[in-house]
Nucleic acid binder design. Structure first.
Length: 484
RNA sequence: GGCGACGUACCCAAGUGGUUAAGGGAGAGGUCUGCAAAAUCUCGAUUCGCCGGUUCGAAUCCGGCCGUCGCCUCCA
C-alpha cells in the first residue's frame, strides 16, 4: 500500500506521514473567533480538515482532533491598540461579551453540523485557559525570552534565532518593512505580546502577576494544543493567512518555552475568494453559511469545497455552486439507483468485483497524495459510470457484489468525503408507508393506460405527480419514482 | 518595496519529465423511449499565459516577461 504523503509548510515539501506515536494522530486546527456567523471561508477550512481527520480514521488511526474557540476578544485593528472584536460586537448587540461568544459558538457548531463536519474531539475555549497562558508568559520571562514593560509581556524575537522558519520572514526584514508606527515599548518591532495590560474600559480582563490584563493572540493556541496533544504533536492546521504572524509566533513561544519542537507537520489551507478577492471579515465581502444554505444544499457546498484542492484558492460563483449542486445530485441519483436495484442472482460478479477493487485502490492512491479530493471525486464519478453500465445490464447484478458496491461508496464518498446524509432516506425515494403504495397504484394505472396507448392520460399522471416533485422514470426494468 | 502562490477547453478543476492532458457543469449529435426523464455512446484543449533554454522527450525543470491573488495589520 502506498504511504500517505502530506505537504508540510515547514519544509515546503510533500513528506511521508509518520506519526509520533504509532497509530495515533494528534491534530490541532485554529478555530474561529466567535463574534459573528461563520462564512464560506470557514466552511472551506473546516471541511478540508474534516476530510483529513476522516481519512486518517479510515486508514485506521486513532485521531484526537483539537480545535479551539477563541472567545477572548482580540483587537479590531492591530496587535497593539484598538477595540476588542467581541466587546465591539457586544456593544452593537447590547449583550454581555460572554453572551456574544456563546451565541456565535452555537451558531458555528450549527453551521458545521449542517455541512456534515464532524465535531472536534476537544473544543477548548481560550477563556478557560487563562492560567495556562499566564504560566507560558512566566516561563518565557524566566528563560529570558520575554520582557515586561508596564504590564505588557513581550516576546523577544531576537532571542529566538529560529524565528521566521515557517513563514520565511526574518525579524530584520520585518523591521525594515513595518507599516505601522513601532510601539516604543518593544525592543524590536517584530516583538509580539504574550500578555497585554488591560486598558481602562476593557471588559474581558484577568488578574496576572503583571496586573489586570488579557492574553496575547498567539498564546491560546500554543497552550491549548500542547495541553491536550503534548509537545511535539503531529499536525497543526490553519488558514494560510495565519501562517504569519500567528503560527510563526506560536512556534517561537512554544519552542522557546520548552526547548523542543512544537509541531511535526504544518498544514495550511487556501482561501475562498469572491470575484478573485479574498473573502474576509475585514473586507466585508463574506457570504455566511446561513445565507448560502438558503440557496444551495449544505452537501452541495461541501461538494464545491472538495472540488478544488485544499491548498488552492476557491473562487465562489453561482455558476460553480450550481455545477456542484448538479454533480452531487447525479451522484445521489446513481447511489439511490444502486440501493434500489434488485440483484438478479446470488453470489458474486467477478468482473464488477474488479471494478470495485480498482476504484478503492485509486481512491486511496489519490487521497494518499496530500488529500487530493478533486481527483478522488473524479475517481468516484468514473466508478458511478461503471455502476450505471452494470445496472443497465441488469442480469449481471449479483447479490454479494451489489452489497460490496454499496459498502465501498458508503465508505469512500460517505464516511471519508462526507457526501452522503446520515440517513439514506434523505436522498432516497421514501419507499415506506402509504405514499409508496398510493404512488404504486398510479404507476400501475399509468402502465395500463400506456398499454392502451392512452398517452394523454398517462402523461397527465406523470405531469401531476411532477408538480408534487415526484418524478416517474420509465426504465427497462419498469417505472421507478423518486422525490426530486 | 520584501516574501510566497497561481495562470490547463465556454465555466470549475486534476495532472508537475515519457502511452490517447482526469473528472464535474454547460453545449452539439446518436442510442434507448409513444414522448419525456434517467442512463449510455460520440464530439469538443494537436495543446497547457507569452518568449527563450535544458533534455532523445516538458503543461510538468531553468531563466525572462505579462497577468491574477495572498501575506507583510485583526482574519479560516
Amino acid at each position: 500500500m502506498e504511504e500517505l504523503k502530506i505537504y508540510n509548510t515547514l519544509t515546503r515539501k510533500k513528506e511521508v506521514f509518520t506519526p509520533i506515536q504509532p497509530k495515533f494522530v494528534g491534530i490541532y486546527v485554529c478555530g474561529p473567533t466567535v463574534y459573528g456567523h461563520a462564512h464560506l471561508g470557514h466552511a472551506k477550512s473546516y471541511i478540508s480538515f474534516d476530510i483529513i481527520v476522516r481519512y486518517f480514521r479510515y486508514l485506521g488511526y486513532k485521531v484526537r482532533y483539537v480545535q479551539n474557540i477563541t472567545d477572548v476578544g482580540h483587537l479590531v485593528t492591530d496587535a497593539d491598540e484598538g477595540e476588542d472584536k467581541i466587546v465591539k460586537q457586544a456593544r452593537l448587540e447590547q449583550l454581555e461579551p460572554m453572551e456574544i461568544a456563546e451565541r456565535y459558538t452555537r451558531s458555528y457548531f450549527e453551521d458545521m453540523d449542517m455541512l456534515n463536519v464532524l465535531r472536534p474531539d476537544i473544543s477548548p475555549r481560550a477563556s478557560g485557559h487563562i492560567p495556562e497562558q499566564i504560566e507560558l508568559a512566566q516561563r518565557l520571562l524566566e528563560k529570558g525570552y520575554a520582557y515586561e514593560v508596564n504590564g505588557n509581556v513581550y516576546f523577544d524575537v531576537q532571542k529566538f534565532k529560529e524565528y521566521g522558519k515557517l513563514s520565511g520572514r526574518k525579524p530584520d526584514e520585518l523591521a525594515a518593512a513595518v507599516r505601522i508606527q513601532p510601539n516604543p515599548e518593544k525592543k524590536h518591532p517584530a516583538d509580539f505580546a504574550v500578555w497585554k495590560r488591560a486598558e481602562p474600559g476593557h471588559i474581558m480582563q484577568w488578574n496576572s502577576p503583571w496586573g489586570r490584563g488579557y492574553p496575547g493572540w498567539h498564546a491560546e493556541c500554543s497552550v491549548m494544543s500542547t495541553k491536550y496533544l503534548g509537545q511535539p504533536f503531529d499536525i497543526h492546521g490553519g488558514g494560510i493567512e495565519n501562517m504569519f504572524p500567528h503560527h510563526e509566533c506560536e512556534i517561537a513561544q512554544s519552542e522557546a518555552a520548552f526547548d523542543k519542537p512544537f509541531v511535526k507537520y504544518w498544514m495550511h489551507n487556501n482561501m475562498v475568494t469572491v470575484n478573485g478577492q479574498k473573502m474576509g471579515k475585514s473586507l466585508g465581502n463574506f457570504i455566511t453559511i446561513k445565507n448560502a444554505v438558503k440557496k444551495y444544499s449544505p452537501l452541495a457546498i461541501r461538494f464545491f469545497v472538495l472540488s478544488s484542492h485544499y491548498r488552492s484558492p476557491l473562487d465562489f460563483s453561482d455558476q460553480a455552486l450550481e455545477a456542484a449542486e448538479k454533480g452531487l445530485a447525479r451522484f445521489h441519483q446513481t447511489f439511490v439507483r444502486l440501493l434500489k436495484a434488485k440483484p438478479a442472482q446470488d453470489g458474486k460478479d467477478e468482473n464488477f468485483e474488479k471494478e470495485i477493487d480498482s476504484y478503492r485502490r485509486k481512491f486511496i492512491e489519490v487521497m494518499n497524495d496530500d488529500f487530493n479530493t478533486p481527483n478522488a471525486l473524479a475517481q468516484l464519478f468514473e466508478f458511478l459510470k461503471e455502476i450505471n453500465i452494470w445496472l443497465d445490464h441488469g442480469k449481471d447484478v449479483a447479490k454479494e457484489t451489489h452489497k460490496k458496491a454499496i459498502k465501498i461508496i458508503d465508505e469512500t464518498a460517505g464516511e471519508v468525503l462526507g457526501l452522503l446524509p446520515e440517513e439514506y432516506s434523505e436522498i432516497e425515494a421514501k419507499s415506506s408507508g402509504d405514499v409508496d403504495l398510493i404512488i404504486q397504484i398510479l404507476i400501475d394505472v399509468r402502465a395500463a393506460l400506456r398499454k392502451e396507448k392512452n398517452f394523454a392520460l398517462a402523461d397527465e399522471i406523470r405531469n401531476r405527480l411532477s408538480e408534487l416533485n415526484i418524478e416517474l422514470k420509465d426504465t427497462p426494468q419498469g417505472t421507478i419514482w423518486e422525490y426530486r
